[in-house]
Design a protein around this nucleic acid. Structure first.
Lengths: 148, 148
DNA sequence: ATGTTATTTAGAATTATTCCTAGTTAGGAG
DNA sequence: CTCCTAACTAGGAATAATTCTAAATAACAT
């Protein structure tokens, strides 16, 4: 879990200005293990920051996600729900450069599913296991791949 | 990947009626490895089913998801995006009924990550592992939990 | 302290999803 | 095969999430 300071200095070293609103959002994110929505963040901060706008919450969250400091759970990047008739456990691998998504057969994923199922008590209905990174081709052909 | 027949008979044996619209949606889902949105399904079927309504697509998808035959990628059960400042690979568990998202410590997830990393050749940058289901409380308090 | 420019705000606009109601239909009973 | 009725669909309205816009504000380098 990132600390408040890590989130803030990630913004700072990426050249973003440190506004009270951004600090507050970082503090809230680092200080909770619930997974708030933009609306919930807005409502929790509103009493202390009466002028806070929901748009600012969305903007700051987008920035933090782009910096890789925060995950956006749900939304496959575009805010829409995608449906998949393949209910066999499998791994999706997305290339952040060429945007292709491939399936990957995995031995460990069924073990993971059994572990999740038995240790949580949930009746599992589905899963999204998505890794993202640079595919082999893009590692050799993009600036990101050579530098990172 | 579920076949058209499996999807259709899942609907049938759960007591749902087999309408041409539902058959068409099942056929489309089983016949693609893209991950269409409700809107895309609607647009692809519209030429052959000019009277088809988007609401029917949403209703059918919800039914199939509740039957566990189709995954809804993205959306932690509600239509909202949840944010998580913990960027260490970990398992998120979302309850489709009460919409709470919890973290789950897991032994197998690091093994999975090593497997993905070595077998894919990707330079991994991050991961999102989200399971959907019914939490223990909602299993006892909802119709879904009792029937499924 | 000042200027530059990124950021915030408030509200409107846009987009995704769900809800509602009247009419239609699938599938079992006869 | 035909009828009956609960289940389903269509279409549009309603709701909810997110993004956009333009003017006001404030961070930070100098």
């Amino acid at each position: 879990m990132a600390t408040t300071e890590e989130l803030i200095s990630a913004l700072q070293s990426a050249g973003y200005r440190l506004t009270p609103q951004r600090r507050a959002i970082c503090r809230l994110l680092a200080g909770t293990d619930t997974h708030p929505t933009a609306q919930e963040i807005y409502e929790q901060l509103k009493p202390d920051y009466p002028s806070l706008s929901l748009a600012t919450v969305y903007n700051t969250l987008e920035t933090l996600v782009n910096l890789g400091m925060v995950y956006a759970l749900g939304s496959a990047g575009d805010g829409r729900v995608h449906y998949d008739a393949d209910t066999q456990p499998h791994v999706n691998l997305a290339c952040v450069s060429c945007h292709r998504v491939v399936d990957l057969p995995s031995e460990h994923i069924s073990a993971l599913e059994r572990e999740v199922s038995s240790s949580s008590g949930y009746r599992l209905l589905g899963a999204r296991v998505l890794y993202y990174g640079l595919c082999p081709q893009c590692q050799s052909s993009t600036r990101l791949g050579r530098d990172a």
